[in-house]
């Protein structure tokens, strides 16, 4: 268990190093950016200064190694069985201090779309709070709820639904 985690951390670290040495030229898309719709009001999303170490493709290659966090029906509570996955992500972020994390919250198709947007956000925020508890800086973690708009599995039964009640990860 512990050995497995250490091994995967080493692999992630190696991948991060490999991409860091080759991929720092491309400017990442993450961040506030230029608002080509004009007339924007409100606070831009995306702290400045992150996402410089690795290029976006390589970051997503690392992020795809993180396993999703799964939730119970209508719940945003993090189950004990999911904690080791989150510890792995926290370790990676601490080993790569210039990398930021986006937590995507998702729901199964049951319930109204609008309620599921809020529920998905609560799931993402629960993951964020857990990672902050593990020592990751709050300004490095953004949340993004997709509600039921982006299912991982397209079936209409519990086996699909349980795959869709999840948090996924991307790096910037």
């Amino acid at each position: 268990m512990k050995a497995g985690r250490v091994l995967s951390m080493i692999m992630l670290g190696a991948l991060a190093l490999a991409v860091a040495s080759t991929g720092c030229k491309k400017k990442p898309k993450a961040g506030s950016g230029v608002d080509d719709f004009g007339g924007m009001i409100g606070t831009p999303v995306g702290p400045e200064g992150y996402g410089m170490a690795m290029n976006p493709d390589d970051l997503q290659a690392v992020a795809s190694q993180f396993s999703p966090i799964y939730f119970d029906y209508d719940s945003s509570q993090i189950n004990a069985g999911q904690r080791s996955s989150l510890e792995e992500i926290a370790d990676f972020l601490q080993a790569n201090p210039s990398t930021g994390l986006i937590v995507e919250g998702h729901c199964d198709e049951r319930g109204s779309n609008e309620y599921n947007l809020a529920l998905g956000e609560r799931r993402a925020l629960a993951v964020r709070a857990y990672l902050i508890g593990l020592g990751v800086g709050a300004d490095r973690i953004q949340t993004k709820s997709y509600g039921e708009e982006r299912p991982a599995s397209l079936g209409h039964d519990e086996s699909s639904w349980s795959q869709n009640r999840r948090a996924e990860f991307s790096l910037f």
Binding site: D35, T43, T143
Partner: peptide, 8 residues
């Protein structure tokens, strides 16, 4: 126009 774009 984007009229609300806060974090989250």
């Amino acid at each position: 126009d984007r009229v609300a774009n806060y974090a989250g």
